[in-house]
Amino acid sequence: MSVNILVLFYGYGAIVDLAKEVTKGSEEEGGQVRLRRVRETIYPELIEKYSIPLDSVKDIQEVSLDDMEWADGFVIGSPTRYGNMAGGLKTFLDTTAPLWKKGSLYGKPVGFFTEASTVHGGHETTILTMATYAFHFGMVIVPLGYGIPEISTSVTGGSPYGASHLSSSKELDNNERIIARFLGKRVTQVAKKLKS
């Protein structure tokens, strides 16, 4: 059975790498994946001041509400901003009220991923802040638990809550890649079961 999976993220650098690993995991499980990003909401003068690499994601389409309706399952990611999701992702999610009103996402599975620069920088709280939307939509939250050994042995990113990256290192390590792919596979497996 084929299922449609939307991998949605805000950000640049390692969060994009995580999104791509999640995509690979879903595709390995037979998911038809759309990789999408949310629009940048930072003021243009700050984009230049902080050297935000907009060019690095220009080939990834911006998400639309049609993408959201198309999906049978979701994996949503954001870097940590003070223990919370980034404002760009929240701004997009705040536009999804028409889908909530129609019940378009009700009963669909969703998992989450994030990155933070320190061990206690908010990996788990960021996932929890993204999950509040899922509660209101009546979605099925798909945690990782300790489903693979890498989750309990990783000293960088990844937890029972979802895939993550400890961004004090620029590159994803092998455990982080494995955990991100596992997240993509797990959400796809749950989407298949719920769709059947």
Rank of each mutant, 00 (worst) to 15 (best):
L18V: 10
I179S: 07
Y133I: 05
S152V: 14
I52A: 11
S169D: 15
A191G: 13
Y146M: 06
F92C: 10
P109V: 06
T129C: 03
L18G: 00
K195H: 12
K195T: 14
Q61S: 09
E69P: 10
V7P: 02
R81S: 07
G158R: 08
E171L: 02
K185M: 10
I60N: 00
Y133E: 03
E62I: 01
E21C: 14
G13N: 13
G13Y: 02
S56E: 15
T114W: 04
A180I: 03
A116L: 05
D72A: 08
G157Q: 05
D94W: 04
A86G: 14
I127V: 12
Y12P: 01
E27T: 15
G157D: 08
N174R: 10
T126D: 06
A191W: 13
T95K: 14
Q32C: 08
V16E: 01
L65S: 11
Y50E: 15
S159C: 00
E176G: 13
E124M: 00
T80Q: 07
R39N: 13
L194H: 12
S164E: 04
E115W: 01
M1G: 15
G158H: 07
Q61R: 03
S164V: 04
H136T: 00
T118E: 11
V33A: 08
K24V: 03
V155W: 13
K58L: 00
K185V: 10
E29M: 11
E124T: 04
P149A: 03
E171I: 01
I141T: 15
V33S: 05
G121W: 12
G83A: 06
V38M: 05
S154M: 02
G121R: 12
I148W: 08
V22E: 02
S104E: 03
T118S: 14
M85V: 11
G87W: 11
Y133M: 08
A97V: 06
V110R: 02
P79K: 12
D66M: 09
I15L: 01
Y43I: 03
S152C: 06
S56Q: 13
N174V: 13
S164A: 11
F137E: 04
L46H: 11
R186L: 10
F113R: 05
N84L: 05
L54M: 08
K20G: 01
D55N: 04
G73H: 04
T156R: 14
K195E: 11
G184E: 14
S26N: 12
P160T: 07
G111L: 02
S159P: 00
A14F: 03
Q32L: 11
T114G: 06
G147P: 08
G11P: 08
P143C: 04
P149D: 01
S167Y: 07
S26V: 13
G13A: 08
L166N: 09
G103D: 09
R181H: 07
E124W: 00
G73T: 03
S152F: 07
S26I: 11
L35F: 00
